[in-house]
Amino acid sequence: MDVDRELLVRKIKDGTVIDHIPAGSALNVIKILGLPRGSRNRMAIIMYTSSSKMGLKDIVKVEGLELTSKEVNMIALIAPTATINIVRDYVLVKKERVKIPELIEGIIKCSNPNCISNQDRETAVPKFRLVSEEPLILRCEYCERYTYKKDILRQFGIGR
């Protein structure tokens, strides 16, 4: 088995494998998750690898970390095809596809600077309804403006 092949298939002991990330988005995923979080989380990032379903895909493996449902939702916003695999003691214990929730609370900011949820000293937590998954459109529950994928990427410093 060559080195590349081994990189793709080697199992992690405990942690999370984020698979089926749209090719080229792995770095955005780790940025949104704020990874790595110190030496505890050994990581492998595999980009532009072949996939029977997707043609090309990215994979992120993180040791010593089980993603919370809030983190899974964050991934859904920028990598809607991703699957989350939780591994404990080399055994796959949970596998789920990410799903953008109908109501998204407190993860991202409204694109409207004049929205109450963007006023620093007020406690209005940003809340959005999902309008469309592709293209991604969210609607603020307070000011009712749209927030698009490009706005979300910009918030995480992945602006174009």
Binding site: N112, N114, C115, I116, A124, Y142, C143, E144
Partner: peptide, 12 residues
């Protein structure tokens, strides 16, 4: 209020 969503926030 000049801020959008202020009334809904107040109602909450």
């Amino acid at each position: 209020h000049r801020i959008e969503g202020a009334a809904k926030y107040a109602a909450d």
